[in-house]
Amino acid sequence: MRRLVFAAVLLLGMGTAAPAVASTHDKADAAAGWLARQLVDGERFEVEFGGERFPDQGGTIDAIFAFAAAGVSGTNAEKAITWLARPEITTGYVGAGTESYAGAHAKLLLGAQVRHRSGTSFGGVDLEGGLRALLTPSGRFSDRSDFGDFSNAFTQSLALIALDRTSGGAPTSARAFLAGTQCADGGFPQDFGQTPCVSDVDSTSVVVQALRATGDTTNAAEGTTWLAGRQNADGGFSLGTAASNANSTGLAAQALAGYRPVAAVKAKRFLRSLQQGCSSPAANRGAISYDATGFDAATARRATAQAVLGLTGVKFANLHGGGQAQAPTLAC
């Protein structure tokens, strides 16, 4: 059990204590606490484009995953899922009318499950039914959109993980399709149908979780072996020939935990090396930088969310809400 140190400050002139502010030495808890404090109004993330700000549903769900993995920031997680359940926010993400996006359905369905919300009536949308309706005869979950099909390995994997948590289970054809995308070297590509098949660290990290969750341990083991072989000397993981980064390392460490313990420990050590500590400005403490070049507010939010998954090792299939309500700060 993680140890939280509580500092209670007495109200001036009164004998009662003010609400305790939690501080922690646990790296994952501190990272999740920092992430919670970055939420706009404590409930959502936004992105800026062309001088305008737009809701970032995907980034907000990533935060919910991180809070569940660490078991902290429960108050913010509940605010976030409540915001996501606003009808205009839900449909603005998963699509409406002739537009329907498989990846968004899958990710939001999993987020709803993590927070113990209905997946068949969320923001006025049947997320489970909508996702199943996007299953093609090949077993691939594909977008229905006038703008093209952007479904990929993350779409397929999150769909399998989310549907496996329902009473109807994950479609066998969908698992077979995903397994069939495996490259000759054992890893998995991000995009389907490309020649040559190029294995990708991020995609392999989530695919092996989906295959294991739905019972395909053989192909998952091959993917895990490939993934472990891609670890850099510093313990991190990268995309292509680039330097190690927190996003790829977080996903890889999450996938390796419990199956390649030595590699997972090295990856966690790398993630801790990127955390902003007590010598950093107070507002940045607990955040995980994208890479060793230092803190960058533009990339730290997503890097921290995915790093928490690696620091805890909790799989997507095992994420559940609950835990501490507070968003702890790094103890200094």
Rank of each mutant, 00 (worst) to 15 (best):
V9P: 00
D56L: 06
A228G: 15
T312F: 02
G103N: 09
G95H: 00
F49I: 09
A228I: 00
F177S: 06
S173D: 07
G193A: 11
S121A: 15
R2G: 00
A77N: 03
G258I: 03
G187H: 08
S151D: 10
D296G: 12
A31D: 05
W34H: 05
S145E: 07
G236L: 04
I81Q: 02
L110V: 03
G103D: 05
V21K: 12
A36Y: 01
T304A: 07
A17C: 11
R115W: 00
A252K: 02
A303G: 11
G50V: 08
F192I: 06
A220H: 08
L109C: 05
G95E: 03
A159K: 04
L251Y: 11
P87I: 12
L35M: 12
L131S: 03
S173G: 04
A69K: 01
L11I: 10
L256V: 07
S138N: 09
L251E: 08
Q276C: 14
F6T: 12
H320W: 01
A297E: 15
A20D: 11
Q209I: 04
D216N: 14
G42W: 00
Y259P: 00
Q306L: 15
A69M: 05
Q182G: 04
A255D: 07
A317V: 10
A31V: 06
D29A: 14
F316P: 02
S280C: 07
A267G: 13
Y101E: 03
K268C: 06
T304G: 01
T204Q: 08
V265L: 13
G180A: 12
F270L: 04
S145L: 07
A307Y: 02
A264M: 09
A102V: 07
D234N: 15
T82H: 03
I288D: 00
A287E: 05
V125Q: 13
F237G: 02
R86M: 12
P19V: 05
A112D: 04
W34E: 02
P55V: 12
W226S: 08
N232C: 01
S289F: 02
V114P: 02
D202T: 06
R140E: 15
T136E: 15
S23K: 13
F122G: 01
L109A: 04
D29Y: 02
Q190C: 07
Q231F: 06
Q57P: 06
M14Q: 14
G322I: 01
G42P: 02
A287F: 02
G180F: 13
